[in-house]
């Protein structure tokens, strides 16, 4: 409260500063977070541009040469191209495999988070807004869901659904929505009691308008933070599932899949097949977490200044 006093000095800031601009400036004050953001842009960028920048298309069997199998990093393949990160047992270029794997991992992580978020938002807002038995029933379901380990739920679902990227996304959405529902409900309950919501009620605005224009925008910030970090969780979870052999199909390997397939060669010295995808996975998750943590710090009014 006191911290705002200095900032409201008249004339000092004539330009209308949007909450977004303020957020961005505040975010940029942390070097680690900016590093995280840079890494994240790099990771997402290379995943998106994989078809353009990857030396070969790892899904195109015609391009693979089994004679190039198990080449160590920096070795030169039969076609004369350097395999910077080596090749796997099929002669697949690891760098290309990682770039494409990143695509799959991010696709699964982001889309399951978006779907989970949408579902959680709907359910959580309903629970907070209607209250009463609706709230009780919804929150009981959420509690039950959250009391099972996510990996277990996902394993069971995938065992029932079978393999496929869409199946993995369904399974991950199912394990995630409950987190969002709970977070949304908590924030919405707090926001709903604030005086600006009462003011909107007093101005006889419609319920829909109050929820859309007043309640929802103020519930979003903490949710976006949770979602960012949750993308990292989803990616890690997908990697685990793939590693256990119930995730994405072999034809479209994700990072987890690559790690799993290289695992058997770890002891015989061909470390690169597992380790490089592992590093890519680690960097992705760390970058997302760095950005998410900073967002949480900036958006949390209790920590600001």
């Amino acid at each position: 409260m006191t911290a705002t006093v200095g900032a409201t000095g008249q004339g000092a800031r004539a330009r209308a500063e949007t909450p977004m601009a303020r957020f961005a400036a505040e975010f940029a004050r942390s070097r680690t977070a900016m590093l995280g953001l840079l890494l994240m842009v790099l990771v997402v960028g290379s995943a998106l541009l994989a078809p353009l920048i990857a030396p070969q298309d790892p899904y195109d069997l015609a391009q693979l040469d089994i004679l190039d199998g198990m080449l160590a990093p920096l070795a030169e393949g039969g076609s004369g191209a350097t395999h910077w990160l080596g090749t796997d047992d099929q002669g697949r270029d690891m760098l290309s495999g990682i770039l494409y794997g990143l695509r799959t991992s991010l696709l699964v992580g982001v889309s399951s988070t978006v779907f989970g978020l949408a579902l959680g938002l709907l359910v959580g807002l309903s629970a907070a807004y209607f209250g009463g038995w609706v709230d009780t029933v919804i929150m009981r379901i959420v509690d039950i869901q959250l009391s099972f380990p996510a990996i277990l739920v996902a394993l069971i679902l995938l065992a029932l659904l079978g393999k496929g990227i869409d199946k993995v996304i369904i399974a991950l959405t199912t394990v995630q929505w409950a987190y969002y529902a709970r977070t949304v409900r908590g924030t919405a309950l707090v926001e709903r009691r604030k005086e600006y919501i009462e003011a909107a009620t007093c101005l006889a605005l419609s319920h829909g308008r109050i929820v859309r224009r007043h309640l929802l925008p103020n519930c979003l910030p903490p949710l976006i933070v949770v979602a960012t970090v949750q993308v990292a969780h989803a990616i890690a979870l997908e990697a685990t599932l793939s590693f256990l052999g119930v995730g994405v199909p072999v034809t479209q390997p994700s990072l987890g899949m690559l790690i799993a397939s290289g695992y058997q060669y770890m002891l015989s010295g061909e470390y690169w097949i597992s380790v490089f995808p592992g590093i890519a996975l680690l960097v992705t998750i760390v970058a997302i977490n760095l950005v998410g943590d900073r967002m949480r710090d900036v958006l949390n009014p209790r920590l600001s200044r």
Binding site: P19, K194, E195, Y196, E198, C202, A204, P217, N218
Partner: peptide, 18 residues
Amino acid sequence: NLAVQMVFQDPMASLNPR
């Protein structure tokens, strides 16, 4: 209802920050 309006205690909490 519109004819009766309220002015609240907390000048910050009573305005939508967004």
